[in-house]
Amino acid sequence: MHVMPKSRVTREYMSTSPSKTQEVTTEYLGKLLADVANTRSRRAFSELFKHFAPRLQAFATRQFGNEQTAMDLVQDTMTNVWHKAHLFSPEKGSPTTWIFTIARNIRFDILRKNKHRQNDVSAEDLWPVLSEEMSDSSEDNFALDQNILMQEIGEYYNVLPDAQRIVIEQIYIQGKSQQEVSDELDIPLGTVKSRTRLALQKLKELITAHD
């Protein structure tokens, strides 16, 4: 199916054994995408690349039967993952699905460019995967950041003392105001504020320490 020139076969990328690869979870891939989006983490992107590039290559080779075109698809797709990771939203689907839809769009455009020269419809018009929302939907952007944040924070959550965790949950997950939390838990507003501050500080430390 995909025949590699002999010179390239010498050292194949086989360091991840198949069983290990299969254990890569959706959550873990999502975390890697979040790291790329938030901190431009080259390490996280390398891991994503090593997971997805060989899969994209197998997919593209089946589709095109042409090794060079297949490699172009891999490179274009992963270039978009590197630059546009912030557009991934776990709400809309898994990382595998998101990356597949990018590859699907690129394939669609490649196939059409061969047939029609001008005035092509781009796949992005039909399936907007890599388009930024316009400014008036800034709430969605906010929601996206919040999601990535919550996803990361989730892992460090249990480290917090109960009193701080409860306050953080009510404010950031249930969306209550600090005053409402103060009323409901029957603790002074100043205490809510200081617990929030301490908890966020602790979370920040944990997140940056693990990066």
Binding site: L56, A58, T97
Partner: peptide
């Protein structure tokens, strides 16, 4: 997506 990206090819390290 799961089906299309479920197989890996052998990708030379270099």
């Amino acid at each position: 997506a799961a089906e299309m990206l479920n197989k890996s090819s052998r990708f030379a390290t270099a």
